[in-house]
Design a protein around this nucleic acid. Structure first.
Lengths: 346, 346
DNA sequence: ATTCGTAACGAAAACGTTTTCGTGTTAACA
DNA sequence: TGTTAACACGAAAACGTTTTCGTTACGAAT
């Protein structure tokens, strides 16, 4: 077991001072060529690598980014992480991940755990519970301590920081427009309760699209699902609600779902009701995950480009970290959505 | 902007020494009740939190675990991460994630980046490229530096460390047995090239199951897909190969695929050939992901319990970290698979 | 012979902790 | 009055770096 070698040990072996070793390794011209070569050879031999922790302490920078997300077993979030990791790595940063599991407390604890020196800045997406309680003190505190935050997807206006979001409204409008243009007369939306910002915005897009086509939104066609009743393991509730939607609206011929899962279940229910997709009823989802791509029929969907979102958040954060002098201007970047047409629409 | 307060600053304000502040906060009885209260009140007021980096340097422990995985946009791996994070957090550890993206170089670079003090130990799954090149020097080096490694899923015998794997062989046998028992006569396997250990083992399970039922494996029923030709974006190749399998084996009535995606595509091809599932042909996959659950028909699959794997790796690693004295015994834990029966089998 | 400049190196501080080992004060005791 | 013990606190080292600021020694210039 060869323990890691330190400057001090090398200095002792070579019978020079620590400073000399350090300078020699960094090619300082204070050091003679002779000693420089000697030291560097020795360092290579013992495979010396500077200790990151010591460097972090000295520089007051960790070169590490903290990510807090509600959930990792999720196509969108993992794509975002991939994007973050990609640019972080390219720029010499590491990525440390904390999961809030949609809980306010875990979000707070995780952030406190990381904020005490472990990282240089945060990238996060707010947990549902936090959004519901509207308690954002932990964000404000970390920001006021000089630690930058970049939020994505689930953001909130009250906090002053950089944000990367998707054009939820426009994306939804694209989807609903597509349904309208291909002849749908009665388009339902399956969405979430309004405290989830993306749910609210996508609903808004749906409404706006209808209105722009002089159609009057009908509440019988709007299904707001309560997230708390629909965990991954209790999809029956969701399915029942969608069943109800179908039964109460026999004339249904278009569905816009604010996420992939809702759309898939909707297709399942449609099949049960002997409706052909896309001939009798068309379906569009949001978020381009594996389900959409590999479902049968494959699902037309609004892609949010998770990886691109991740890349952008990382760029924003690192830029901010490396230009501390910069003026305190915060930007909100919008990543354009794209309607990916597949078999579930005409 | 209230910067984080340090012991030194508090000491100056309170006109005592740094040591006194430190001791007062840790309730040392060297300190009088008066000063202790005074210091603690002050600390609470200024929301003092010890700096993690300084602690890490002092204790030579970071309380951080490094995870290196080939890919994060993947149901299995993200479930493992969730498991790791769960127990790590419970035991006061953080989790830092590096992605190898199936590349040998990135794996090496990422590990070197983290091994220099940033973390206390590794949890990893080997990249395909590394498995192919069979170059494991980076693992051996980190281990010989006293940094423990726990490997999962894609492991390799040559390395001496704790391992958590799935009973791939047994799991496959369960699947194939199920097919045999429900009447399949000609069971094909869709698997990977042999250098991917899990592919090899699952193929072995398939062969053993057949032999135990006195059946002779036929090479025409064994499709080994070259991973390099099948990225997420080039599924056509995969589909074509499976098409071929179907056309060359008209009598096909059972398929065992070593992952979810292969199984889903196989079902798609089966439908194209007008075979009913499960009446005409049954399909079983491996890895219980979101695709299996929500496919139509939903897919019978061998679940590997990714989260449980993650939890176990974390327990093994942290136990090792916290009992350094322990003898150098390495264990290989096998997490049992489970056959989850759904609609794609009888 | 004195001054100066420079090359080559070392000492020490700093980052923020914890902990060991003094040290001074006070009260108790002989 | 002198000794001792307890109490309350401070100084300093240590973790591993980097960097500033000396400090030598020596050759060149005056």
């Amino acid at each position: 077991m060869k323990k890691k070698v330190t400057l001090k040990q090398m200095a002792r072996e070579l019978d020079v001072s620590i400073s000399t070793v350090s300078k020699a390794l960094r090619n300082s011209k204070e050091i003679s060529e002779d000693t420089r070569d000697k030291v560097q050879a020795f360092a290579k031999l013992y495979n010396y690598r500077p200790n990151n922790i010591a460097l972090s302490l000295k520089n007051r920078k960790t070169k590490t980014i903290g990510i807090i997300i509600p959930e990792i077993v999720h196509h969108f979030f993992s794509k975002v992480i991939r994007g973050i990791e990609l640019v972080a790595n390219k720029r010499g940063y590491n990525v440390i991940v904390g999961l809030s599991n949609e809980s306010f407390d875990k979000e707070v604890i995780n952030m406190e755990m990381l904020a005490n020196g472990s990282i240089d800045g945060f990238i996060l997406s707010i947990s549902k519970e936090t959004l519901q309680q509207q308690d954002y003190h932990h964000f404000n505190e970390t920001i006021s301590q000089g630690m930058p935050i970049v939020m994505f997807d689930r953001v909130v206006n009250e906090i002053n920081c950089d944000k990367v979001i998707v054009d939820d409204i426009l994306g939804s409008k694209k989807a609903v427009n597509k349904l309208i243009e291909t002849g749908c007369k009665n388009i339902a939306i399956i969405t979430t309760k309004d405290y989830v910002s993306v749910g609210r915005l996508r609903t808004q897009g749906y409404l706006e699209a209808l209105e722009e086509h002089k159609r009057i939104p009908e509440s019988r066609l709007i299904l707001k699902v309560d997230d708390k009743l629909v965990s991954e393991d209790h999809l029956e509730v969701l399915e029942t609600e969608i069943e109800l939607l179908f039964e109460q609206n026999k004339d249904l011929d278009g569905i816009f779902a604010v996420n992939e899962l809702y759309a898939i279940i909707a297709m399942k229910v449609a099949r049960k009701h002997n409706k052909r997709i896309p001939e009798d009823i068309q379906v569009i989802g949001f978020t381009d995950g594996v389900l959409s791509k590999h479902a049968t029929p494959s699902l037309t969907t609004v892609s949010q480009h998770g990886q691109k979102i991740g890349e952008k958040t990382a760029v924003l954060l690192i830029d901010k970290l490396e230009n501390e002098d910069e003026e305190e201007r915060y930007q909100t970047v919008i990543i354009e959505t794209e309607l990916i047409e597949r078999e579930s629409t005409k």
